[in-house]
């Protein structure tokens, strides 16, 4: 080990351990993934330091590049910001887990520290034809059957992923015609043919959160986005109208509701 490698290790290793704790404490899965990416890159650097440049590059390409991207994709599929609570549901699991993990770490490290290893040989000889070539020679002679088998495993995995995520259509496809027919059929039960009304537009408000008014001047509740309604972020038409009336009539006194409106919209 050259001094340079020593320095590299002592800088990188504590950082990797520290960041890996993010897996345990980070609330959002995305943050966990970011931690993982850092640790993976750390691994890659260590591989290169360990005279395994080929593996280092593969680590970055395969893990950091492909595998972690796959994780992020899946995270996006299931909802990025669904942060999971850290409250434990199984009784005692937290303590059991912590104790077991600590025990494992201690016992493994203990074994490693106690063992007397033979003096390191180093890979200078094996890597004399450059690491990738040396690796390829081993891979393509002693392990060529394993290579073939692994190839089959990969293909199987790809196909099985297709099969597993394949969604079988249980109902006939719902095209434009079907939707239109359904709307007509639903008319007697109070359905509607026309699209939903757009949110109301007022003199001084961009009114995504405010219902439109029908010809009689009554607010149409459905015109506001469903999400806003569920979140309770819509405003009553009367508030806005009152505000605008007030603006016209008593400019100085009714400034307050108007000031809060842009704030809401920016969120």
């Amino acid at each position: 080990m050259s001094p340079g490698e020593d320095v590299l290790f002592w800088v990188l290793a504590p950082l990797m351990v520290l960041v890996s704790f993010g897996l345990l404490v980070a609330r959002k899965a995305v943050h966990v993934a970011i931690c993982m990416v850092f640790v993976m890159i750390g691994f890659a650097v260590l591989y290169i330091a360990l005279e395994a440049p080929f593996l280092g590059v593969v680590q970055i390409v395969v893990y950091t590049g492909a595998v972690m991207m796959l994780f992020l994709f899946v995270l996006m599929l299931v909802g990025v910001d669904a942060s999971s609570s850290l409250v434990e549901t199984i009784r005692g699991q937290r303590w059991i887990g912590v104790i077991l993990a600590l025990g494992l770490g201690v016992i493994l490290s203990g074994v490693v520290v106690q063992t007397v290893f033979p003096p390191a040989v180093g890979l200078a000889e094996a890597n004399s034809v450059t690491n990738p070539v040396g690796l390829a020679r081993v891979l393509m002679s002693d392990y060529v059957l394993a290579m073939e088998v692994v190839g089959i495993v990969l293909i199987t995995a790809a196909v099985s992923a297709l099969v597993l995520t394949h969604k079988r259509r249980l109902t006939p496809a719902r095209g434009q015609k079907e939707i239109a027919d359904a709307k007509v059929a639903a008319l007697p039960q109070g359905g509607r043919l026309t699209p939903l009304a757009a949110p109301g537009v007022y003199a001084q408000n961009n009114a995504m959160d405010t219902p439109a008014l029908d010809p009689q001047g009554r607010p149409i509740a459905e015109s506001v986005s469903r999400v806003l309604r569920i979140r309770g972020q819509q405003r009553e038409a009367t508030d806005v109208l009152l505000g605008e009336h007030g603006l016209v009539e008593r400019t100085s006194t009714v400034a307050e509701p108007e000031g809060s409106a842009p704030d809401e919209e920016e969120r």
């Binding site: 199984i90 059991i96 077991l100 993990a101 074994v111």
Partner: peptide, 24 residues
């Protein structure tokens, strides 16, 4: 057998530790 995967994982890990300890 509570059906929680994590409990099972904990059992596996515990078994591993015991085996390594015994071997040592």
């Amino acid at each position: 057998q509570n059906g929680f995967v994590r409990s099972y994982a904990a059992t596996i890990l515990g078994g591993l530790i015991v085996i390594v300890a015994v071997v040592l």
